[in-house]
Design a protein around this nucleic acid. Structure first.
Lengths: 239, 239
DNA sequence: GAAAACCCTCAAGCTCCGGTTGAACGTCGC
DNA sequence: GCGACGTTCAACCGGAGCTTGAGGGTTTTC
C-alpha cells in the first residue's frame, strides 16, 4: 500500500488489529482479535480501513477499546449502555462528515406522555408522602395541577423522584437538593438565552433549530459538569 | 398453622409470596413470583417457611428483594455481585476477606491514566490555543504541571475540552462556563461532606464505602439536574 | 365440602448477551 | 511463493436470568 500522506497533520501512528491486541494484552489478558471485531460489529468502535480492507486503528481507537473493556470489567455495564455513553462523548469530535442529521433533534425532548397520580408516584419511587412533599417544596419536583387541584406527575418527575430517593437514602436531606435545583435553573437560563432570538420569531424552522441547539448544548454542559465533579471527587478520594 | 409467637418484639407482619409481588409490583412492574423464587435459589434471599412449606417473607425480606432489583435496575449489577454486596451487608461489620479477586473495589473513579500534551489536547479537541487558555483561566480545565512547568492533561480534560468546544461553537463564551464550574464545585462540596466523616479515619473499608457512596450519589444528582434542565427546556420550547 | 385461588418442587426450555470457531479466501513482507 | 497476518460470514456456544409446565399439596371462600 502507498497511502500517500504528502502533507497534513502529524504522522499519526496507526496499528493493525494484531498490534492492538498486543498493546492491550498486558492490561487485559482476555482481549482477543475476535472480541475487537465483535465490538466493531456492535458499533462501539469504528476503526478506519486500509485500501486493502484491513482495519486501521489510531491511538484514539485503542483508547476507546480500552475504555469499553474497563467499563465492562469495573462496572459490569452492558455494551448497549457503554455504547450510549460513548456516543454522547463522540458527538464532540465527529461533525465534518455529517451532512444531515441521523436522529431527529426533537427526540431529545420527547416526553413519554405518561402521567401519574400521587399514589402512583409514591409507589413507583418508594418515597414517603412527607419526602415527596418536601421535594415539591424545594421545587425539585413540581407537578402540574388540574383545575380541581389534584397534582399530575410526569415520567420526568418519576425519574427525579427515584434519583432523589437514592440521595436521601445516603443521608442527604431535601433542603440539600435545593442547590441542585438552583444549578438547573441557572443552566436553563443560560441555554435559554442562546435560543431566545430564535424563539422570538417562531416558525417551524426556528423551532427545529432551537431544539437542536438546546439538545446539543444541554448535553455538552451536563458532560462538563459531571466530568468535573467526578474528577474532583476522585482527587478527594485520593487525598 | 399456629406459629405461636407468645411474647416478643413488634408483631411482625409477614407475607406470602403473592403478597410480596403485589407489594413490589407498582415500583417494579416486571417482578414475578418465579423471579422471587429464582432469587432464593441463587441464595440472595432466605425467606422462612411455614409448617406447610409456604415461603414466609418478613418486611426485611421484602426490603432485601427491593434492594436486589434496584441494584439490577440502577447499576446493572449481576446477581453474583449483588449477592456478595448483600452478604457483606449481612455480616454487618464483618467482611474482612473478599474471597474472590474478581471485581476491583468500586472503580467508578478509575482514570484511564492516559495523559496528553498541550499539542495533543488541542488537536484532539479542536480548540484553539486561546480558547484552551481561556478555559484554563475559568478553571474549567486545569492540567497538572510538571516540575518544569509543562502542563499535562488527562482524558477527563479531553472530554471536557470537547464538550466545551461544542458549547463555544454554539455561541457561548468561556466566561459563561464559569457557572458550570461553580455548580460542579458546589456539588462536589455537598457530596464531599457526605463522606467526610469516613475519610477522617482512612482505612481500606472506609475508602471503599466512600467511593461507593460518591459514585451513587454523584450519579443520582446528575440525573436530577439533567432531568430538571431537560424538562424546563422542553417547556420553553413548547412555549 | 367442594371449587377456586394460591402455594410447592423440579426439570426443561428459552432469550439475550458476549463472544468463539471454522471455512474459505485475500494481502503483506521476506 | 510461503508463512504470518488480515478479511467475511454463518454457525455455534456457555452463562445469566428467568419462564413454563407437569404434577401435586394447602388455604380461602362460598
Amino acid at each position: 500500500m502507498a497511502e500517500l500522506r504528502a502533507v497534513g497533520p502529524p504522522p499519526r501512528r496507526t496499528h493493525t488489529i494484531g498490534e492492538v491486541i498486543n498493546l492491550l494484552r498486558p492490561e487485559f489478558p482476555d482481549i482477543s482479535v475476535s472480541k475487537v471485531r465483535f465490538l466493531e460489529s456492535r458499533g462501539l468502535i469504528q476503526p478506519g480501513r486500509s485500501s486493502s480492507g484491513y482495519r486501521v486503528f489510531t491511538d484514539e481507537d485503542v483508547q476507546r477499546i480500552q475504555y469499553v473493556i474497563t467499563e465492562q470489567r469495573d462496572h459490569y455495564l452492558p455494551l448497549k449502555v457503554i455504547k450510549s455513553k460513548l456516543s454522547a462523548w463522540d458527538k464532540g469530535k465527529e461533525s465534518p462528515v455529517v451532512p444531515d442529521s441521523g436522529p431527529p433533534p426533537e427526540a431529545y425532548f420527547a416526553s413519554s406522555g405518561v402521567s401519574l397520580s400521587t399514589r402512583e408516584i409514591l409507589r413507583s419511587s418508594g418515597l414517603s408522602e412527607e419526602l415527596l412533599d418536601a421535594l415539591e417544596r424545594e421545587g425539585i419536583i413540581d407537578p402540574v395541577e388540574l383545575p380541581d387541584g389534584t397534582p399530575v406527575y410526569t415520567d420526568s418527575d418519576l425519574q427525579i423522584a427515584r434519583a432523589a430517593h437514592r440521595l436521601l437514602n445516603r443521608g442527604l436531606e431535601p433542603r440539600h437538593l435545593r442547590g441542585i435545583r438552583l444549578a438547573a435553573d441557572r443552566q436553563t437560563d443560560l441555554l435559554g438565552q442562546l435560543v431566545a432570538p430564535l424563539l422570538r420569531h417562531r416558525n417551524p424552522d426556528n423551532q427545529r433549530r432551537s431544539s437542536e441547539i438546546l439538545a446539543d448544548t444541554s448535553e455538552a454542559s451536563a458532560i462538563i459538569q459531571e466530568t468535573l465533579v467526578r474528577s474532583r471527587l476522585r482527587k478527594l478520594l485520593e487525598h
